[in-house]
C-alpha cells in the first residue's frame, strides 16, 4: 500500500491489536483461571511482519499481553531473543513454497532449539506461515511441543472451544472444558 502509494482512507490493523484493546476495555472477558493449577507453559513466536518489520514492539507487546491474559503471566516463557530481535522461524518470504526444504529446515533449527530451551508445551504462532514451519520442525527434529493458533487458546480460556476446533491441542488439553 505504502509501496505503491495507493490512496485509501481505511486503516490497517493486526487482529492482535484488537484482541488487546478488547481485553483491556473489558469488551472481551478472559482470564487464566483454567491454567492456575495445570500450570501448562506457553511461549510465542513473534512474526517478523508485525515485529521487526514495523519498526516497533507495539504489536508483539500486545501479543504478549493477550497471551498472558489467557494462560497466566507465570505460565508464559519468552524465547531468547524475542520481539523485534526475534529469529525468523524460517517459513517466511515464501520459503515454505520455495522448494529448498533442507535449507529451510536448517534455517529453522535455531528457532527449534530456542523453543526447546523454553521448556514450553505449546508454541503460539499468530502467523499462518510460522505455524506451518514450527509444526514441520517439531516433526522433523522430533520435538514434543504443540503449535497453536492464538484463537484456539483464547477460545479455550473463554470456555467456548468446540469439539472440532482442537486439532492442534496436545492430549493434556484435548478434552479440556468439554462436557462429555
Amino acid at each position: 500500500m505504502k509501496k505503491y502509494k495507493i490512496p485509501h482512507t481505511f486503516e490497517f490493523k493486526s487482529i492482535l491489536e484488537l484482541y488487546a484493546q478488547w481485553i483491556k476495555d473489558g469488551t472481551l472477558k478472559v482470564n487464566s483461571d483454567w491454567n492456575k493449577d495445570l500450570k501448562i507453559k506457553f511461549t510465542v513466536q513473534d512474526p517478523c511482519n508485525i515485529g521487526r518489520k514495523i519498526g516497533t514492539n507495539k504489536i508483539v507487546d500486545d501479543l504478549r499481553f493477550v497471551v498472558k491474559a489467557v494462560v497466566g503471566e507465570e505460565n508464559f516463557v519468552d524465547m531468547i531473543p524475542n520481539r523485534s530481535n526475534n529469529f525468523c522461524c524460517g517459513g517466511g518470504g515464501g520459503a515454505l513454497q520455495g522448494g529448498h526444504t533442507e535449507q529451510r529446515r536448517a534455517y529453522g533449527k535455531v528457532k527449534f532449539d530456542q523453543i526447546i530451551e523454553t521448556g514450553a508445551r505449546y508454541v503460539i504462532t499468530p502467523c499462518h506461515n510460522c505455524h506451518a514451519q514450527i509444526e514441520d520442525m517439531c516433526h522433523h527434529y522430533g520435538g514434543d511441543y504443540h503449535t497453536l493458533h492464538l484463537w484456539t487458546i483464547i477460545a479455550l480460556a473463554m470456555g467456548m472451544l468446540g469439539e472440532n476446533e482442537r486439532t492442534y491441542l496436545g492430549p493434556d488439553l484435548a478434552d479440556f472444558g468439554l462436557d462429555t
Partner: peptide, 26 residues
Amino acid sequence: ALNQNSREPVTEPDELGPLWKILHKA
C-alpha cells in the same frame, strides 16, 4: 473488513470457528 490467510478456510475450515466466536463475543 477481515483479511485471512486462505489456507485456513481451505485446508482447516474448523479453525475459523474460534476466531468467529471471539469476534462475536466482542
